[in-house]
Design a protein around this nucleic acid. Structure first.
Length: 274
DNA sequence: TCTTTATGGTGAG
DNA sequence: TCACCCTAAAGAT
């Protein structure tokens, strides 16, 4: 569940069963964290929030858990006593009287005094959260033209969490496709109209992905493809993972390229190269 | 049993 | 840009 929208949905599920509840017991799978089991038992969960792909669980005793799922972490929320039989390694198990929130496989977990969280090396350097409702497209457009970004290629900017936190490899591809802008462009060379279009797509695609649980295609197109019998994985994205398949807009073959060992996809007709 | 791949991130040069 | 860290599943042998 790696990108911002999926992390935020997991946080929503966890918040529903944890917020306001007392921790009956909590255990950590990583040995360096075991000592916190005792310190968090009996604390009450104040809030579960996300900052990009990082999740923060705040307790009423002044401590917070920072967790980042990287590529592999998976959250599971179950009724108390219903441990899933998973082969994955259990890294965090937080139990209330009625439910358990379980984090598997993640390795980037730490416990912080809440007031020191701003000093966390990741949190200290990330940009605004892509799902922050107060973030408006004009601010995104403005960020694209900040000195740190305006001369770099969009393909690089859109993976940089310092630009906007929560975008990952599939949102990068999907946002650029939706805006019909090739990943090799630099903000400095975009017209005003293109910048605005890109900024709007950035927010629209991210928020849509949050609402649908990771589908970036518009609902009408997605349900038409479902009627056509396509399996779920083939009716999620405009371009991501669709190498050599026809573009949904123009029929051209979607292209794929390797960049920093990450794959990026685009339509050569809809997204004109610089 | 091996190698590869993945929706992520860091630090050196 | 590259090497590396992290973990698990899928694919190749």
């Amino acid at each position: 569940m790696p990108e911002g929208p999926e992390i935020r949905r997991a946080a929503d599920r966890i918040a529903r069963v944890l917020e306001g509840q007392e921790v009956e017991s909590i255990s950590f799978g990583l040995s360096r964290l075991k000592r916190y089991g005792r310190r968090l038992r009996g604390a009450r969960v104040l809030e579960v929030e996300t900052r990009g792909k990082a999740m923060l669980t705040h307790f009423d005793n002044g401590l917070s858990i920072y967790s980042h799922n990287q590529l592999y972490g998976v959250w599971s929320v179950v009724k108390r006593g219903e441990l899933p039989n998973s082969k994955r390694s259990l890294r965090l198990a937080l139990h209330t009287a009625t439910h358990s929130a379980l984090l598997y496989s993640a390795s980037d977990i730490s416990v912080w005094p809440t007031e020191e969280l701003p000093q966390h090396p990741f949190l200290a350097r990330i940009g605004p959260d892509i799902l922050n409702a107060a973030l408006d497209w004009r601010q995104v457009a403005q960020r694209l033209h900040m000195g740190a970004f305006r001369g770099r290629r969009l393909s690089a900017i859109y993976l940089d969490q310092g630009f906007l936190a929560g975008i990952g490899n599939y949102l990068r591809t999907e946002i650029l496709f939706d805006a019909a802008i090739h990943p090799d462009w630099r903000p400095a060379d975009l017209t005003r109209g293109e910048t605005g279009r890109l900024a709007r797509s950035t927010l629209a695609i991210s928020r849509h992905s949050y609402e649908t649980g990771g589908i970036t295609l518009p609902k009408r197109l997605a349900s038409r493809l479902e009627k056509d019998g396509l399996p779920r994985e083939q009716r999620r994205f405009y371009a991501f993972g669709r190498t050599h398949h026809p573009c949904f807009r123009c029929g051209s073959e979607i292209q794929r390229r390797e960049m920093n060992s990450r794959r990026i996809y685009w339509c050569p007709s809809c997204q004109e190269a610089p």
